[in-house]
Nucleic acid binder design. Structure first.
Lengths: 340, 340
DNA sequence: TAATCCAATGAAAACGTTTGCAGTAAGCAC
DNA sequence: GTGCTTACTGCAAACGTTTTCATTGGATTA
């Protein structure tokens, strides 16, 4: 290949032995005479021999590479997931290819197909919010390439899944507001199309009904995304037009967007309105007032997903194990924004 | 390989022709009879044939994959760089392997070596702040694998580099503070070991001296990292013990840490102390007061780096072109924190 | 009829590696 | 000297492609 790359053949030629012997010597195979082994290893070291990865892959049908498909990369949560994946994968000798789809269905299809060509031993995916057809993932099953969904999963495909207990998190957050004395609690959430947001919303509703508070549709809004601008835009009517005393947001950025509105309206946080966010991004600690939020175990999610995937890759049972869905618990972090 | 994966051989066998013909037919080679071509393509489609990536790589000595080594992934700037790289690379049919070293020299060495085994066609790297020996990058030159450094570069290695004009950025930021009327301007920067921070600091010093302001070492601190906690910790003495009226920080997080100190001391921003950060992270816009800062063109940096790298990969000139160092300009963004 | 040509296809080598099998030489026992 | 073991090494196939070169059979030409 590239000039200067030394192969087993080169070493074999220089020592006047066969490639087979060199290969065995490098593997410390005792069938090879000790002196030969020594000579081979010395030469390999001298030339800084590195086994050709592609050749190894072709022969073994293993790429020792995992594919990751995520909607965004400029995102603290996904970044943590990636770290978790990497940490487990590296320990097992795997590399990682990351594709971020920018929340685009088309790109997701392209990426999923690109990774299907024997390039990866398995795939970790979090579906984008614009995806409604899942055929590009069905192929993985047909080809027996292990697949793990995390966070934004799709019910349609039967495989390993690692999710967060969004229902319980939404429930806990709302209950926390209720027990702080809030009675008129608004909900500002991300795209309701996504399961995770449906569950957070259900948690909110359930907490209300358990407390005997009837649902008020005027206090609920589902945004297109989960970012700051959306939070500003969609919370405006709720914040200005009504008399809320609490607000649960589906993401920290939505929460902060809402808080900005609340402050501008002249209301005090948490005195007039208590706020709880979701995700525990670093900004939630730094913003003033600091934001109570739900800590999502992103690192753990990545780590666990990689664990499931690599286990499946290395132990491809003939009779398929029933696919597991791992549900990770979250933690409510109480900060200034909800301390009435 | 995996059950269910169909190869050229399978198609050839089923049609009773040779693999060569199938290969040619799939490539639309006119040497193959039209009817044969049609039959092959139909069968390929029926079985959803996908060429084996590894086999192609082995034969062509091209992996169509770029390696990226970065110190951190939970980092808006790097995330933008990655997006820039991906966008250019995808357009050219390349995939991307990302390794984040967590600012660890050991991990950097491991990653650089792992990517050296014929797995990638080229490498994009930003060195970690703990790295002092660069042998793991020198091998790339020896093996003729193109290498591009971005952001945190190393002088020792002669290759393509894409950097930001940190000197000019530091100069501009400080000059802005001076022209806003500041006379006692503090500097709170990241690790001075890194070239980028040396340059930002030099820019600061030069702006001072041009304005006839003499340097005051008591107003200067170099932190170990560039994060919020460091900003809080290291700015405390400067903020509380002296009478500064301006502060230039090497990162937005350092700036915000310092601002928290300033606020706690009872001083007003920008009235008493004007502040300028560096990076234009999203938090700088959201924080109150919003932070004036230097916008770093992360996306552009990634895009340009990928462009240089892929050009070098696809046009490996025998007589090496003189290596280019691309310097990208930044932009001062004035927000509330510096509007006196 | 034989020589020539063209279209279509196949055989084989190559990329770098591992590994089952076969082979060689030396040593030993009879 | 014959036969058997032991210790080591090489050959060849295989992974899935592409591509050079050779081959085939039929049609055309002299």
């Amino acid at each position: 290949m590239k000039k200067g790359t030394v192969t087993i053949k080169d070493i074999a030629f220089e020592l006047n032995i066969s490639p087979s012997t060199v290969s065995r010597a490098l593997a410390d195979n005792p069938l090879v005479r000790a002196s030969t082994r020594k000579a081979v290893k010395e030469l390999a070291k001298k030339y800084n021999y590195q086994p050709n990865f592609t050749a190894l892959s072709l022969r073994s049908n293993k790429t020792k590479t995992l594919g990751i498909i995520i909607p965004q990369i400029v995102h603290e949560f996904f970044a943590q997931v990636i770290r978790g994946i990497e940490d487990f994968a590296y320990g097992k000798g795997y590399n990682v290819i990351i594709s971020s789809t920018q929340e685009s269905y088309e790109r997701e299809v392209i990426d999923a197909n690109a990774l299907l060509t024997g390039r990866v031993d398995g795939l970790l995916a979090c579906i984008s919010r614009t995806t409604e057809n899942y055929d590009h993932f069905k192929q993985y099953d047909e080809r027996n390439i292990p697949l793990v969904f995390f966070d934004c999963i799709c019910d349609e495909i039967n495989t390993y899944k690692v999710v967060i207990d969004d229902f319980n998190a939404g429930f806990t957050a709302t209950k926390h507001l209720i027990s702080s004395g809030c009675k008129n609690i608004a909900y500002v959430g991300g795209p309701i199309k996504l399961l995770i947001n449906q569950d957070r919303y259900k948690g909110y509703l359930t907490a209300l009904s358990e407390a005997g508070i009837s649902e008020n549709p005027e206090l609920v809004v589902h945004c297109e995304s989960g970012d700051f601008e959306d939070g500003m835009k969609h919370s405006k009517k709720i914040v200005q037009g009504s008399t809320i005393d609490g607000l649960f947001a589906g993401t920290d950025m939505l929460a902060i967007g809402a808080m900005k509105n609340i402050k501008e309206t002249g209301l005090m946080i948490p005195k007039d309105v208590a706020v709880v966010g979701f995700s525990n991004w670093s900004i939630s600690e730094i913003y003033e007032p600091s934001l109570s939020t739900i800590d999502q175990p992103g690192y753990k999610m990545g780590y666990k997903s990689a664990e499931l995937l690599i286990d499946k890759i290395e132990n491809p049972s003939s009779e398929p194990k029933p696919y597991e869905t791992v549900v990770l618990q979250t933690e409510l972090i109480v900060r200034e924004s909800s301390k009435k």
